[in-house]
Design a protein around this nucleic acid. Structure first.
Length: 271
DNA sequence: AACCAGGTTGACG
DNA sequence: CGTCAACATGGT
């Protein structure tokens, strides 16, 4: 990967789809706030900012983006200061993962956003999760223009007494409990960041509606704990089929391997 | 029109 | 400890 090049108001980052594939990364269900525009570009909100980007075989274009914003926000968001190469080398020695694609990177999302969105994700599907998250943002997030909204702050959600109308179903009470715990200090996300993995798991699972899967997703996608290993219905099937003896210890960081496996089984037969 | 969705909870063996 | 229905709602 080279350094980004300023082109008018845009920034162009020369990078291959093997290093970072935008569609795989933004549509694999680790984040829920990016969608495709009519022209094929991606647009969405992250870290309280609007972002539009597109990708070709040559690289990625960040529209209306200053170099300083790339350095301060987007480079980190797309985890571009992390070298995945040694991990991919290990994965490619595994007979199953050797067939997978490695274009996904683990986004560095904000902990609160990841926690809430994965509470909403349970027993739901990706299109519906996106719609739920958008309704939450439209109601409680800062308007950013173009009909888009930032993800609401924990402080704002802690002040909400009634989440009805957002069509969260039974997850409504879970979001409420999460916001309350953060609001009254029973849960401190910045403290969770510093905890050892086991302790962080325990802390998150105090929240109603946060079981093993949601906790792992929050840790992997919101706290960048790459060792976290979410087991959902898809991974459960994949483990039974390909790794009946258990997931190999050598495939580390397990969370990154999990994403490649997840993508692989979900796209079987679609390519 | 059923069935399933990036699950968790609480009850019951 | 493991199993299992119920949960609210919408996508396919």
């Amino acid at each position: 990967m080279d350094s980004p090049i300023v082109q008018g108001n845009d920034l162009f980052l020369p990078i291959s789809k093997g290093e970072l594939c935008l569609s795989d990364t933004l549509e694999c269900g680790q984040c829920f706030r990016f969608g495709r525009e009519a022209d094929g570009s991606f647009a969405g909100v992250a870290r309280g900012r609007l972002l539009r980007l597109s990708q070709t075989g040559e690289g990625i274009r960040f529209y209306d983006t200053a170099l300083s914003d790339y350095e301060a926000l987007w480079k980190g968001y797309f985890d571009l200061d992390t070298d995945y190469a040694p991990w991919k080398a290990r994965f490619s020695e595994d007979p199953v993962l050797a067939k997978a694609e490695y274009g996904i990177r683990i986004l560095r999302q904000e902990p609160f956003e990841a926690l809430i969105t994965f509470i909403l994700s349970q027993n739901s599907n990706i299109p519906r999760i996106r719609a739920s998250v958008e309704r939450l943002c439209a109601r409680y997030g800062e308007p950013l223009g173009e009909g888009r909204f930032a993800f609401p702050t924990a402080k704002r959600l802690a002040a909400v007494s009634d989440f009805s109308g957002l069509r969260f179903g039974y997850r409504e009470a879970y979001v409420y409990d999460c916001a309350q715990r953060i609001g009254d200090g029973r849960l401190d996300l910045s403290a969770v960041e510093k905890m050892p993995l086991c302790e962080a798991r325990q802390a998150l699972r105090q929240i109603r509606g946060v079981g093993p899967k949601v906790a792992e997703c929050a840790l992997l996608f919101g706290f960048h704990r790459l060792e976290a290993f979410p087991v959902d219905t898809w991974i459960k099937k994949a483990l039974a089929r390909y790794y009946p003896g258990g997931f190999p210890q050598a495939l580390q960081p397990a969370g990154v391997a999990q994403q490649y496996l997840f993508h692989y089984i979900r796209t079987l037969g679609n390519e």
